[in-house]
Amino acid sequence: MIKINNIVKVYNPKKSNEFEALHGVSCEIADGEMVAVIGKSGAGKSTLLHILACIDNFQSGEYYIDDTLVKDLSEKKYAQIRNEKIGMVMQDFALVEDFTALENVMIPLNFSKQKSKNKKEKALDALRSVGIEELAKKPCSKLSGGQKQRVAIARAIVNEPSMLLADEPTGALDTKTSAEIMELFKKLNSQGRTIIIVTHDMNVAEQCDRVIEISDGVIV
């Protein structure tokens, strides 16, 4: 379960260009839920996602993952949470272009504290589960947008995290491929994973269990 309570995020604090992106945001997301976070550009939805993904900090408030307070932890602990509990899928896929699909999927396994005897097998399993096992040895630079997003999803799930965070996952894809990717998310959700999708596409939002709208840094 994810719980955030009164989160405040300020960019460039105490500087002339200080900007408060989130003004005391609170919400709860239950295990296995599929939630869409929508809002206009600059509303604060990506900021919220980055805080949830432990790649950005916040000034005040509380953030719990499974009743564990995620604040003022060591860098090592944050890295462990990002590696074990969270899977990230980005609009631009965030793949190492010159690595093969398999190598990309193996990245999180190499940061994992848990000793995995056969990393390659695990990565192939993840690729199989997103339906692109045959592309394992192909460099990502030679894959289509849909294939790249599948590789990104495979990488996000390879460590079997409880939560998947997706930032505009269909933003760079055509309608057909977007539908395929959403089907994949639904499939992963049906397997018990919590999925949070940041989007401004209402078609995507409608396919989720719940929609959270952010406007000017607050949940509407």
């Binding site: 860098e75 590696n83 980005m90 793949l95 190492v96 990245i107 940061f111 994992s112």
Partner: peptide, 15 residues
């Protein structure tokens, strides 16, 4: 740089 950012998303410690 971009590569390191991806590593960071995937669980690499900052720095």
């Amino acid at each position: 740089k971009k590569k390191f950012m991806i590593y960071y998303y995937c669980g690499m410690e900052y720095g």
